[in-house]
Design a protein around this nucleic acid. Structure first.
Lengths: 365, 365
DNA sequence: TTGAAAGCGATACCAC
DNA sequence: GTGGTATCGCTTTCAA
């Protein structure tokens, strides 16, 4: 039994067994060129002595250098800017790796994303972080990347059943379910509710719809759900649809907007003088939304924590790249429910958050 | 201009200037024994070359060893166990430090806490993480610790205007305000609401009361607040008070329990067949609460993220101890609002979460 | 004021 | 199969 204050290193094991450092190293790492007997002996004494490798020394010697690409859209910037910052933050916090990070941008989901991904995977990066819009389209590309030895990590949404090494996103169906619960709490009598979504080919949006509908059915039988309104992320379309549906005599009393593209809908409501009369739950947080939440015109918004998503995505990618390649971790973050009363904790980040805001970002991550 | 792929090190600077490594190091670290001229020259070229120190090498050479104590109560375990785990997690993730962590325990807040803190600060730790119950009583102790060169970090609550190097807690007044908003959403007509609190000498509890009352006044003028009920964390007392107040003819329609000690109150409600009829918002999450949230008997609970609190507390303490001692960061985490619909994301941790649950912990941190 | 060199702990290469 | 040893980049001590 040695000094328990100081954890043992390879040297200690070698001394204890009167063998060389090289042998100890080989045994510990299951490398060829060591007899089974000595291997077991080393492993056992390592256990006994409480061996734990000095990570700093390990990192120094190995001198790993990794290159990672992040392929993300420019829009919507209030979501992807903090996400990128989360990635940068995690990159800065990474110790013992010489990490080179390259960002690839494309205008928006569905326009140039596949091409950007292809461009990124052609340069031999060690890992690529990307947002799978239409997941099906990425299947062959991710497969090819995996064959080329490029680890791919989904962020913002998932591409299930592909060779990606993991994914990080806000839990979509739970987001939808929370929206349903909030509306049910605020609409006590029989009423109709509507959901405005973006693109039902995006897994994330289907899941939100699913979660919303399911929760309504279970906990709010007094609320009936209208057919989902798909705006395809086009503001005009969303505005038109909102005007149309809200002008009806039997208009919905509650609305869930499951995409960040909520302003057109809110504008329509405003013009019809329905803001505040109709209960609205939105998604994400951005500058224009702030006064609406503060004044109670919007009941709540479901914050998808883009900074944390980016941070966690890179952290896990590095874990995969540096340590043993484990089975795919599918992380689904708990969305933050932002009301007018806790808005202040998130408000610092509504602008494209810069520099000093990192402290604040960390506070609510 | 050198290869931009690889960031420059001390060696590169030395070579560029044809001076020795020692001089470069002295200049970079503003150590004595270097002429102002060469110092500036080194600093300038460091800038030009994009010098960034190899943290692994730095850590290896410095071989810092730090000792940290965490002084926390045994009860309530569903809060402090995950908090301790968060501390352990951060300790495990710390690279380049030989960290020795020692836990001090005492039965509960107010019984043995001061003594435990004193015991911990007598052994010369580099840092101490503790929960300031009655903050006033800690003032002289924290001052003494600071004089002895021990960095103290508050967790769970804060001890303002003391020499602690920082604090991490859930934002208390916002917690109270959210509770008010939830009740106001669920009680639309004129009604009374009650708040059950623990100890009004604890800053955290006063703040929750403050936030609750303030938000009620602003956004829910139709709700009137009864005088706060202080249980002093005694279950019997809470139960008695609950029975008494809920038996009245003009009983409250909404209840906010701002302490984890909510079961006695819920038991009283159950016995009076008021569960589900009275709107209840609780604090924290533990096994017994789960079915009540699932069934809608409890509207929501405000989760104070103990794991994250512990993790962040140690992370910041280490930051202070290793890097430059910065001004005190007061971190107030955004509490998670847990409804029946997002309960599933938090449920994994209701037992005293063990081993494998870390992944889940991280998911919702 | 500056230079040279030893070593932190783990790894990998080359002898034997 | 095993032992010795140079090396990663930085800090620090000792000489000059």
């Amino acid at each position: 039994m040695t000094n328990p204050e100081k954890s043992a290193g390879v040297k200690d094991i070698a001394q204890a067994l009167k063998i060389s450092l090289g042998t100890v190293d080989r045994a510990l790492h299951d490398r060829p060129g060591v007899s089974p007997k000595t291997r077991d002996l080393v492993l056992k004494t390592a256990q006994q002595l409480g061996y734990s490798p000095n990570l700093a020394a390990q990192a120094l010697k190995l001198n790993r250098r990794l290159s990672v690409a992040a392929v993300l859209p420019k829009h919507i910037s209030h979501f992807f800017d903090p996400l990128r910052e989360g990635i940068r933050y995690a990159a800065g916090a990474a110790v013992g790796v010489n990490l080179s990070l390259e960002f690839f941008e494309y205008p928006r989901l569905g326009s140039g994303d596949i091409e950007a991904f292809r461009r990124a995977t052609q340069k031999q990066f060690d890992g690529v972080i990307f947002l799978p819009g239409d997941a099906r389209k990425y299947e062959p590309l991710v497969k090819k990347a995996a064959q080329d030895g490029i680890a791919t990590m989904c962020v913002g949404s998932d591409a299930p059943n592909t060779e990606r090494i993991g994914s990080v996103s806000a839990h979509a169906s739970v987001s939808g379910a929370i929206a349903a619960e909030l509306l049910s709490q605020n609409l006590t009598s029989k009423a109709e509710v509507a959901i405005f979504t973006g693109e039902l080919s995006t897994l994330d949006h289907v899941e939100k719809l699913r979660g919303f509908a399911a929760a309504l059915a279970v906990i709010a039988p007094h609320l009936t759900l209208r057919p989902a309104l798909e705006s395809h992320e086009r503001p005009r379309e969303a505005y038109r649809q909102a005007l149309e549906v809200m002008k009806e005599k039997a208009r919905p009393s509650g609305i869930y907007i499951s995409t960040a593209n909520s302003m057109p809908v809110l504008k329509a409501l405003d013009e019809l003088s329905l803001l505040g009369k109709v209960k609205v739950v939105t998604t994400d947080l951005f500058r224009e939304l702030v006064p609406l939440i503060e004044s109670g015109m919007v009941l709540a918004t479901l914050y998808q924590r883009p900074f944390t998503q980016g941070k966690v995505a890179l952290e896990n990618l590095l874990l995969h790249l540096l340590r043993d390649r484990k089975p795919q971790p599918i992380l689904q973050l708990a969305p933050h429910v932002i009301f007018r009363t806790n808005l202040c904790l998130f408000e610092t980040r509504v602008g494209t958050s810069q520099d000093e805001d990192i402290e604040a970002e960390l506070q609510t991550q």
